[in-house]
């Protein structure tokens, strides 16, 4: 029984991390209709910035150490991730949209970008680096749940009630009609990437709070495709769906670890992924979009 609760707690903590990253994937896919494979590299970059800042300012802040460091790392990671995201969108993805390329072309370009970023990051260093711990496990757990819930609520409000949020949904529906309304598509799409990458940054910092090890393969291998799988399971394009998917995957993974079968977690996660997609291709909370003839 004790194992169960430990697994549950770890699962929720891990799940909140996956949920945040899944939200990032989901927003971009929902609005720009492309799978941003490079998202995993944004995660690594965010983690790197956080690590760098933590190492740099390790001794500076006094009593506000924990909270201060957390905010500092968050801020730094978000800023850098957002910049990288904007550059990627501007130089790699926007020209494709202008040309009217197919989705697969966009997907392959995203893979290309992720390889480039991965290569650059790995060239810097390929050791595993220790991240300083700011909080004990329980506090970190609470922080992650609170942050995830807060962001979910914020995002939902943004997308449903604000002008720009509604404009984002309009752009995802019909780009041409949106232009006629005076909506600047390029700006909206860039904004989407900004939000997505900011979420990735927040997610990775929260992750590092509990698992304080950083490698340059963090986004691509350690965390890997799990957030993406989470987004798809929950229903890509659906915000609560991504969060649900994130928690589900997190719990699956941690239960596997707790019961000693973490070597099989890939099989379990991808297995559930395939099964869910077979019976509900739009994801658990997704909308079934039928092709109109």
């Amino acid at each position: 029984m004790e194992l169960f609760f430990e697994g549950l707690k770890n699962g929720l903590a891990m799940g909140s991390v996956f949920a945040l990253m899944a939200l990032g994937y989901s927003m971009v896919y929902g609005i720009v209709k492309m799978i941003n494979f490079a998202h995993s590299e944004f995660i690594t970059i965010g983690g790197f910035v956080a690590f760098f800042l933590a190492a740099l300012f390790h001794d500076v802040l006094g009593w506000a150490y924990s909270v201060g460091m957390l905010l500092l790392c968050l801020a730094g990671a978000i800023v850098v991730c957002v910049i990288i995201a904007i550059l990627t969108e501007r130089f790699a993805y926007r020209p494709l949209r202008k040309k009217g390329s197919s989705r697969i072309t966009a997907l392959i370009t995203a893979i290309g970008v992720s390889y480039i970023l991965n290569g650059i990051l790995n060239a810097i260093n390929n050791k595993q680096l220790q991240f300083p711990t700011f909080f004990d496990n329980d506090t970190a757990f609470i922080i992650s749940i609170v942050v995830t819930a807060a962001l979910l609520i914020l995002l939902t409000f943004f997308v449903k009630k604000t002008k720009v949020g509604i404009a984002m949904r309009a752009v995802s529906e019909n780009e041409e009609a949106a232009k006629l309304m005076g909506i600047n598509n390029n700006f909206i799409i860039a904004l989407t990437f900004v939000i997505g990458s900011a979420l990735a940054a927040i997610g990775v910092v929260i992750y590092l709070l509990r698992v304080p090890f950083f490698t340059f393969e963090l986004g691509s291998s350690t965390i890997g495709l799990y957030p993406f799988v989470a987004a798809v399971i929950g229903g890509i394009g659906s915000l609560p769906g991504s969060v649900l998917g994130g928690f589900l995957i997190g719990i699956l993974k941690e239960f596997a670890a707790v019961f000693g079968i973490s070597a099989w977690s890939d099989v379990i996660v991808y297995g559930i992924f395939v099964i869910i997609l077979l019976f509900k291709p739009a994801g658990l909370l997704g909308k079934d979009v039928r092709e109109k003839v």
Binding site: L96, S101, I111, G112, I116, N118
Partner: peptide, 19 residues
Amino acid sequence: SNPKIIYGIILVVIMLFRS
């Protein structure tokens, strides 16, 4: 030691210019 960078560049360049 970083063949991935070249792969990435090849992919992006090809997709942008001759998909």
